[in-house]
Amino acid sequence: MGDDWKRQLDRIHEGLVRRDDPAEWVTEADAVEASYRYPNLLLRGPVFGLAVQEPADAPRWRVLTEVTCGRPQEARDSLNSHLWFQAKDDTDDPEVRRELLAAVALLEREPVDEVRAAGSRYRVIRGDEFARGGDDGLEPPRPTDPEPAKRSWEFTPDARPSELGMPLDPGREQGLMTGALKLALRDFSYSGTGFPDGMLRDSVSAVRTHPEVALLPVAFCVVERLDGRWRPRSALVPTPHDARRVLNDGLTDFWPRMTGLDERGRAAYARAAERFRAAERADEVRVGDEMFRVCRIERMVRCGADGPEGPRPSDTDSHPPERIHPPMAADGTIDYS
């Protein structure tokens, strides 16, 4: 560890001592234990979202949408919609509306990753998503991970990761173990034969061009053990119980319907869901040979001199730019024809 790393960790440690917060120390102890039980960082792949730099907040960037898209174009489409609805609902000024709609028109034609409109900079940002692994598989939630104040098993479709509005500030102190992780991730790049040469080159280049690391809030998802490997079975959600609720809903409704299970199979899933709910804070359930687990997911965004990293040349898209919303005039009239 270099002297710069040691100085930064010493500063974080001094801050913890100065605050003398018992809850923080318990969280740190929990993180230390997890680092021994789940020492391996397992990359799940890139994720994309949007960030904005407002005039009054520059040079700081803030997260505008959840960083959960699987492809850059999905995030560009989100930016297209965000700017279109700004033009529709958030201004009565024709000049501001023209500026917003010009950015929308550009996003309809070209796969651009940054636009300026109404005084703000908008950027498609790229992150990496990873889980921790150990001898017994992927890391489940920790005892100190936050839970909702009121836990319910009722279906709620709007539980999303909680990074909206957070600053992408690599220097923000977040605890000793988190600080150590950020410092270790500064030199992280892809390796191994499972990645195309372009992805390997871009990853090495990103360490140089975007050397700092900002961590997004921890999220959770449901994974399934299948053929010796873990695969995701849900989107990211903000708390362990949100993921438990997704798992319960999957067992009782979604997965039997999607896979066309017979009556015996549906009954087995229903019994497993009942056992899972009765345990209240369980993070794993088996149905025959299938194993499902609530998994803890972490995400990082690289940052450089001009802010967060955007998509890399080797990141691929599933569809080209396209028109998403009907044309709008500078006076706000929408052409639905």
Rank of each mutant, 00 (worst) to 15 (best):
L164R: 13
L107N: 04
R299Y: 06
P311N: 05
R97S: 07
D90C: 14
G171D: 15
H210F: 12
D4K: 12
R233P: 03
N248F: 02
L41H: 05
D253S: 14
C295T: 12
M291L: 15
I297A: 09
V26Y: 09
P55F: 05
E114N: 05
D145H: 11
T144C: 13
R264P: 03
V223L: 03
P148M: 01
R323W: 03
R121I: 15
D3A: 15
D289C: 05
R121Q: 14
E173T: 08
L16Y: 00
T144K: 09
G288T: 15
E129N: 01
W84L: 05
F220R: 02
H325S: 04
K150S: 10
T91H: 12
N80D: 10
L64V: 03
D10S: 07
P196L: 09
N80W: 08
R225S: 13
D113W: 09
F254N: 03
P311R: 06
E95A: 13
M300T: 00
P326N: 11
G179Q: 04
G260C: 15
D77F: 12
E33G: 00
R323G: 11
W25I: 01
I324T: 08
L42D: 14
S152N: 05
L185K: 00
A75T: 01
R201D: 11
R109N: 02
P217L: 05
G171H: 14
G179R: 06
P148S: 08
V17I: 07
L236T: 06
G179K: 05
T91A: 10
W61G: 07
A149R: 13
A270C: 09
K88M: 11
V52E: 07
V52R: 10
Q53Y: 03
R264T: 14
L247I: 09
V104P: 05
V301N: 01
D113Y: 03
V204K: 14
R71L: 13
T27L: 10
S152R: 07
R229D: 14
V222H: 08
T252E: 14
H210P: 02
P240K: 01
W153C: 00
H319M: 04
G70Q: 15
S81I: 10
Y36K: 03
L107W: 03
D158A: 10
D57A: 10
R277W: 13
V218R: 05
E309S: 06
R151G: 01
G2D: 14
K150W: 05
V112M: 04
L236G: 06
